[in-house]
Design a protein around this nucleic acid. Structure first.
Length: 354
DNA sequence: TATCCGTGGAT
DNA sequence: TATCCAAGGAT
């Protein structure tokens, strides 16, 4: 039985590598700031989704220094829609740590990177390898899949990740650690895909034990996960006569932490529609939307009934929230579910999109 | 180790 | 429609 040769992967990579905005051309020196920014954005997020955010972020915050000095609101707004908002908070904290702790330059080793906010085992290895040429094993979902198929690893993820890391590290070419990491990810993204892998085009088709057994689809082994129960609630779109909408800021941690929202009642599997207006921010002529806004989070689905009202002089308790002109909604860090809610509420009031 | 944390696209 | 899942990290 022949063992997989890293050189075969590198030959394939030199011919088939994807051109991506955060990648340099062969021979160019990568900018650690761009490498780091792209790696954070790409966590659990598709390349296609990241591309426009990466460009906009870079235009708005060209350097780690500028990002560190930016207000938190500006960072959250630039991230709005991309999801996993703790990444944005940690991104900001990390930029500030790089400035204060490391003089504005990213540390060059996996161990030092690992100590920064939002940088874990994968990202520290990826940045160390890609930006600084350190021999490190950047094990992400792609690498888990490639290695568990290549060696037909039976330990289910995430426990099996340790062996994947050992196998990967043992194969890193000393002269091209960054390219090897990116080659593995390209292979996983384009050839060794979750379903219907294109084994005929794979540089490692011969030594791959899963392919030899015809069981590519059975790897990586994974433990079954359970879904959460449906939660329901009420959301309140209140428009003042000067076309300003009542918003508030969510608590800094937890679900949608630090993001903006319209007032809502509790989101609960025991939500009672008959008492929904108990949670309204003010007395008004509330009109319910015909259909609910549905949204699916990682661990539970959500249905929000939208109540909308226009009033000239809303009696809002102090501290309830703030009024933002509808024309400035783009500057608010609104998660996708809240953009759906606001669109629905405006439709109820016949205000449409403007 | 298990759970929490978004979103949009593919099948 | 239902399910999976994509360059994970924090707790």
């Amino acid at each position: 039985m022949q063992r997989p040769d890293p050189a075969d992967l590198m030959i394939w990579y030199d011919r088939q590598r994807r051109a991506l905005p955060w990648r340099t051309l062969p021979g160019e020196q990568p900018d650690p700031y761009r490498v780091w920014l792209s790696e954070i954005m790409l966590q659990q997020t598709t390349v296609q989704a990241v591309k426009p955010y990466f460009a906009a972020f870079l235009a708005r915050f060209p350097t780690v220094q500028s990002l560190a000095e930016a207000p938190a609101d500006a960072v959250m707004s630039a991230w709005a829609g991309l999801g996993y908002y703790s990444r944005a908070r940690n991104l900001h904290a990390c930029a500030q740590a790089v400035v204060t702790r490391h003089g504005g330059r990213f540390p060059a080793t996996e161990a030092e990177l690992r100590d920064l906010p939002g940088i874990g085992a994968y990202t520290s290895a990826a940045v160390a390898a890609i930006a600084f040429g350190e021999v490190a094993a950047a094990v992400d979902g792609n690498v888990e899949r490639v290695m568990s198929r290549l060696f037909r690893l039976e330990t289910p993820m995430p426990a099996g990740r340790a062996e994947v890391a050992r196998r990967t590290l043992a194969m890193v070419p000393a002269d091209r650690p960054g390219d090897f990491a990116q080659a593995l990810m390209d292979l996983g993204a384009t050839i060794c895909t979750p379903r219907k892998p294109a084994c005929a085009l794979c540089p490692w088709r011969a030594p791959c034990l899963a392919r030899q057994a015809g069981e590519q689809d059975a790897y990586p082994r994974k433990l079954a996960k359970k879904g959460g129960a449906l939660r329901r609630g009420a959301a309140f779109v209140l428009i003042r006569n000067d076309d300003a909408i009542l918003l508030r800021t969510r608590p800094p941690k937890g679900l949608l932490g630090g993001m903006a929202e319209v007032p809502t009642g509790l989101w609960s599997d025991r939500h009672d529609p008959l008492r929904a207006l108990d949670d309204a921010p003010t007395n008004a002529a509330w009109t319910a939307s015909n259909s609910v806004v549905r949204h699916v989070f990682t661990h539970f689905p959500l249905e929000l009934t939208v109540y909308a009202a226009r009033t000239a002089d809303p009696a809002i308790a102090p501290g309830t929230g703030r009024f933002t002109p509808l024309g400035q909604l783009a500057d608010e860090p609104l998660p996708t579910v809240m953009r759906k809610v606001i669109a629905t509420g405006l439709a109820v009031l016949g205000l449409g999109r403007g």
